[in-house]
Design a protein around this nucleic acid. Structure first.
Lengths: 250, 250
DNA sequence: TTTCCCTGATGATCTGGATCAATGCCCGGA
DNA sequence: TCCGGGCATTGATCCAGATCATCAGGGAAA
């Protein structure tokens, strides 16, 4: 792991700039409205800041491995992180891709139940679980927010299960592109040329397919005109209606 | 739906019997220690009882359908219930089997995100979500219990995703039998001749396989001596070690 | 008792996606 | 500038599990 840990001042230039204006780092955070942190009043943010450490990792760095004691939870502030599980013979299942504002660690108990690796360069806020639990105890809204997030993730997991159990390769790829597009929109990023920061191999391990099948299927979508490939890992959705129809299984 | 709704007195003869002894129905409930209800002190159980309705359904009855407004949540007290999602062309994915003590409705928002159908005859406690939310608000422990359950289910969903994405038919069937065994044990039922109340078709739709593959794979496990089939939908695990090795993918 | 229906088991064949293999491209380091 | 390694694409072949088809058992109704 080559990621360095930066204390207090957040690595985001913009946040730093705003912080110098007089606001606290958390109050200036670009993704606070997306994250758990939105559960706290501005006046309570200093409590959060007191227990948080800013961290950054480069693409390919490991944040933690499945089976390690889960002493920390994280909030992703920039970049893309992947979560995955391995079978003894090396088969891999990527269980999720996380983006700015996403929370890491809801599902874990005493040990991490998956490994986490940076897809791109990322920045995160790290919390010691023990301290966050304490803070949560005093702020019931924080706990409620966490329950809301857990319920949301549970609903998303059901969709993922349907996809893996019953959808074809073409339906999976279409669903995947649409999901990335919708999530980008939700966090305020452009939803049409949609970023695909992860490799074909990562996509395959997320969708239960091989890289070859991912590649061939994307080619088919491209040749049919439904999507186009931009440079720099971006997909242009030319016909969203068609993509939705395919994804839903019509 | 042919299930009848019974007010107040629980349909369980045993619970009724105990209730007559002077305890409240909830205090006498066989599965309270497994259910959300364990979050409340005995002294607060009357608040729960005030908003709960006992319900029963026959095998094959529908509890609710995907897309309906989710006005109720439920706690299963006896029997087996399956949750499933459909694709437009009729492909079905069973996302979960629920047993005594399990809670129905954590993942739902305004609408049910899956349909629920009784696998065997079942009994449940029904709560109006609106009223339960109110009660929750006053009993922080209830909310904490729900968060704990959501986190647990999230972890289980990860396993299901790994299974659907990367395991072979043989590994899926083995994992499935072991899961049922472990859950039976957790709720205090015998874990070795393990009950398999659902049809081969339901199992297939849960594991992302066809009935034929389920049937053939179970036959292979039986012929290898790892398991035996008892009458009355029961499986005898002869070699748990072997089954675990297969399930884990060694 | 016979008939019907539903579920599960099993055989024969087919196919979507896996596997194996080769090539091209881009980027970074010498 | 050239070389090497990683990633994506594409082609050829294979196979696990799907699909199609048949049959056996067992319970319910007549």
């Amino acid at each position: 792991m080559s990621g360095s840990e930066v204390q207090k001042p957040p690595p985001l230039a913009k946040a730093l700039y705003r912080a110098r204006q007089g606001d606290s780092p958390c109050a200036a955070c670009d993704v606070r409205h997306l994250a758990v942190c939105s559960a706290l009043e501005e006046s309570d943010l200093n409590e959060l800041e007191a227990i948080l450490h800013h961290t950054q990792l480069s693409a390919g760095d490991t944040l933690f491995d499945e089976g390690e004691p889960s002493t920390n939870v994280y909030n992703l502030t920039t970049g893309c992180l992947k979560l995955y599980k391995l079978l003894p013979d090396g088969r891999r299942q990527v269980t999720g891709f996380l983006f700015a504002g996403d929370f890491v660690g809801l599902a874990n108990r005493d040990e991490y139940i998956y490994s986490a690796e940076a897809v791109s360069a990322i920045t995160l806020c790290r919390f010691e679980k023990r301290k966050l639990d304490q803070l949560m105890h005093d702020h019931i809204n924080f706990e409620r927010r966490l329950l809301g997030m857990a319920r949301f993730e549970l609903a998303e997991a059901q969709d993922q299960i349907l996809m893996l159990g019953r959808k074809t390769a073409m339906e999976r790829i279409s669903s995947f592109i649409l999901m990335l597009s919708e999530r980008a929109k939700r966090r305020g990023d452009p939803d049409n040329p949609v970023g695909l920061p992860m490799s074909r191999n990562d996509i395959g391990d997320y969708l239960g397919l091989t890289t070859e099948t991912v590649s061939r299927t994307i080619t088919r979508l491209r040749k049919s005109g439904t999507i186009s490939l931009d440079t720099d890992h971006k997909v242009i959705i030319n016909d969203r209606e068609a993509l939705v129809e395919i994804a839903e299984g019509y």
